[in-house]
Amino acid sequence: MRSVVLKSGMVTFAAMVASVAVAAVAMGLQGQVLEGNALLLSFLCPLFVAWPVSAYNYWQKRNLTHLHDQLAQAHDDLAAAHRSLADAHARLAMRASRDAMTGLLNRESFFQAVEGAHRDGEACHLLIIDADHFKAINDTHGHTVGDAALVAIATAISRAAGAHLVAGRIGGEEFAVCIPAGHARSDVAVAEAIRAEVAGLRFLAADATPIALSVSIGGATFAPRLAVSSVFQLADKRLYAAKSRGRNSIVTGASVASSVAA
């Protein structure tokens, strides 16, 4: 408010000076002297005209500037809210697609990824991985230790498979990995890396008792004429073949199993 009064006063003063100067020149051209009522009017006219007009204009300008600032702030707040909403949406999407315990893709998301690749005609290899003797771990050491063992196994699978392969938890103690046909490592190499990584884990129970962890792995390859469900059934059948070999082993269609007695 003070700035409006100050600026309006300056404009009014300038207008009064200009008014007196113009009136003095005009009177001088007529051979007269600016004085009396003429001088008074030269002061009063700018005072009653320039003051309210300039004050109104500066007041409106101040209000417009304030509104512009409010609009800019509202725009910034809206942009921040949009970013926050996008981040929240991304987090929700991530949570919806991930297994809460292990962080791997959940069953639905893994199947969607595999079915999408199959629809696009991309050849790939499927590995189904099952934790060996998992019921015995739960029965002996409790479900908390069993859950920790699953997390350790999931971490080992992720580490051995690498960041570029799709990995998921598709059942209680069952995991799966999808390997593109053109991948640098074969399905057998990836399966062996996973088996060895899990077997090399040093896992301890709550009382520091060492617990040996291992997995059995069955593999199958997608083909255009095979349905996704058929490939899963074939990989699952080979998983049970690996179990029957004594566990901690691999059975795929590409090679004879690698097997290490549990």
Rank of each mutant, 00 (worst) to 15 (best):
M1L: 09
V5Q: 11
S8Q: 13
M10V: 13
A14W: 10
M16W: 12
A24T: 09
V25W: 10
L29V: 11
G31T: 10
Q32W: 08
L34D: 01
L40R: 12
S42E: 01
P46C: 12
L47T: 08
L47Q: 02
A50D: 00
W51E: 02
W51H: 07
V53S: 13
Y56I: 09
N57R: 14
N57Y: 15
N57D: 15
L67F: 13
H68F: 15
H68Y: 14
D69G: 14
L71Y: 03
A72E: 07
Q73Y: 09
A74K: 14
A74N: 13
H75D: 14
D76R: 14
D77H: 11
L78K: 05
A79S: 15
A80D: 11
A81D: 15
A81K: 15
A81H: 14
A88L: 13
R91K: 12
A93P: 00
M94N: 13
A96S: 15
A96H: 14
A96Y: 14
S97P: 02
S97L: 12
D99F: 10
A100M: 15
M101I: 12
G103S: 04
L104F: 02
L105T: 01
R107N: 05
F111T: 04
F111V: 05
F111L: 14
Q112R: 14
Q112N: 14
A113F: 04
E115H: 13
E115N: 13
E115K: 15
G116L: 06
G116F: 13
A117I: 05
H118D: 05
R119E: 11
D120T: 09
E122Y: 03
E122S: 12
E122A: 11
A123R: 13
C124Y: 05
C124M: 15
L126V: 04
L127Q: 05
F134M: 06
K135M: 01
I137T: 03
T140L: 12
H141V: 00
H143K: 01
H143F: 06
V145A: 05
D147G: 01
A149M: 00
V151N: 03
I153Y: 09
I157S: 04
I157A: 01
S158L: 08
G162A: 05
G162M: 03
A163W: 02
H164F: 01
H164A: 05
V166Q: 08
V166M: 08
I170Y: 07
G171V: 07
A176G: 03
A176N: 02
A176F: 03
C178V: 04
G182F: 08
H183L: 11
H183G: 02
A184Q: 09
A191N: 06
A191L: 04
A191S: 01
A191T: 02
E192K: 07
I194W: 06
G200I: 13
G200D: 14
L201S: 08
L201M: 02
F203Q: 06
L204C: 09
A205E: 09
A206M: 10
A206N: 12
D207S: 09
D207Y: 08
V215I: 07
S216Y: 02
I217G: 03
A220P: 01
A220I: 00
A223R: 15
R225G: 12
V228M: 11
V231Y: 00
R238F: 04
Y240F: 14
A241L: 10
K243W: 07
G246P: 03
N248A: 07
S249R: 06
V251W: 00
V251A: 11
A254P: 00
S255K: 03
A257F: 03
A261G: 04
